[in-house]
Computed example of a mutant assay.
Amino acid sequence: MPFNPRARTRAFTAAAVASAAAVVGPLLLAPTADAAAQAVVPPPAHAGFDYQIGSPYTPPAGVQVVSRDHTAAPAAGLYNICYVNAFQAQPGAESEWGDLLLRDAKGNVVYDEDWGEAMLDIRTDAKRKQIAAKVDAWIDGCAGKGFNAVEPDNLDTFDRTNLISESNAKAYVKLLADHAHAKGLAIAQKNTPGFSTDRATTGLDFAVAEECGQWDECGDYTAGFNDNVIVIEYQDKAFRKTCAEFGDRLSVVLRDVNVSAPGDSGYVRKTC
């Protein structure tokens, strides 16, 4: 199961809802055997969105786009984004990665301490290709289930260690983008606002931005992706600010940090 959402950002165009609804229909077909021939289409801009990477549930009324973990099934009749942890290992899954885990000069595995996740070693072309092959298998599963796009998380792992560079991250995510496109899937830039204007290098199609209002970064995403930006806020004050500044352009949702389901005591979901 996925873990809590990544509030990873560091302080460091447009379609109306009606027109967005009109384009959703053609996007809902599951990828065919000849997926490479399909047009890759990002989610409709300014569409109702729900972030369900913690636990899938029946989408609320008005939702057109849903993000769910790759282990879940897509929501029927909607545009579905498939979440994968692409740059770090799931807690407890280190043994699945063997020598592909990032190690420091002493040979110790390097962890994202906030989330207890071992980082993957994307510093060389050879290891990038090996890691991508494993993640590509998850992407294949997303395509096979009928998802429309993929959301590879932790693109900004390099921001939490001096062992990985931005160029390493860009080279690796481009491998994932090429594979996703070959399967007929769009692919998101998850956080990392500084990459938004370098789409020619990364190959990414739209953005999923956590807390861009909190950190005054939403404009950084629109600079590269125009209105093809989905925003998740976790604090009500930041959510209200984001709605005031971008609510007429972008898909914006307020969620609880545990992305829980209705009926759970901490469940929160609001839209502009």
Rank of each mutant, 00 (worst) to 15 (best):
F206H: 01
K129F: 03
R10G: 02
Q130K: 15
A73E: 14
E117W: 11
I230H: 02
V173E: 05
W138D: 10
C212I: 07
F12T: 00
K134Q: 12
A33Q: 04
V110K: 00
A169G: 02
K129Y: 02
F246L: 06
S165G: 06
V173I: 14
D198A: 09
A16I: 01
C272R: 03
S260W: 04
K190M: 05
G247C: 07
D205C: 05
I53S: 11
P43E: 12
I139F: 07
N154A: 14
W115V: 10
I139R: 07
A89E: 13
S251H: 07
G213I: 14
Q88H: 11
H70A: 14
R249E: 13
H70K: 05
S95D: 13
A186V: 10
I81E: 07
V66N: 08
A209F: 08
T157E: 03
D153Q: 04
G92V: 14
A200L: 00
Q90A: 12
T124A: 09
D112S: 07
A177D: 01
Q90K: 08
D256L: 15
E210V: 08
S260I: 02
Y172W: 09
V208S: 04
C243S: 04
L254G: 06
Q88F: 03
A169T: 03
K106A: 15
R8E: 15
G48W: 02
Y234T: 12
N148Q: 14
K134A: 07
F49G: 00
A171P: 01
T271I: 11
A93F: 14
F49T: 02
N228G: 09
A22P: 02
K170D: 02
G263N: 11
V229H: 00
G144L: 09
P43K: 04
R240Q: 13
D248P: 09
M119K: 07
T58D: 15
E245L: 05
G194E: 13
E210S: 10
P26I: 12
K106T: 04
R8I: 01
D159N: 04
D104L: 12
A143P: 02
A33N: 06
A143E: 04
A132D: 02
T192M: 04
D205S: 06
D136R: 07
A75L: 10
P152T: 09
G77A: 12
K270V: 11
Y234I: 06
V41I: 13
K127Y: 03
K174F: 01
D114Q: 13
D50S: 13
Q130C: 07
F158W: 14
D121K: 08
T197S: 10
T157M: 05
C142D: 11
G92W: 09
L102Y: 10
D112W: 02
G107L: 04
D220K: 11
A45F: 03
L28R: 15
Y51C: 09
G266A: 04
L175T: 08
T161I: 10
D50R: 03
R269Y: 13
D140P: 01
L250M: 13
F147G: 03
K134H: 09
T271R: 11
R160Q: 06
V208F: 11
T124F: 00
T124W: 01
T271E: 09
L185R: 06
D114Y: 09
V66H: 06
S67H: 01
D156G: 01
Y221A: 03
E217R: 10
W215I: 00
G184D: 07
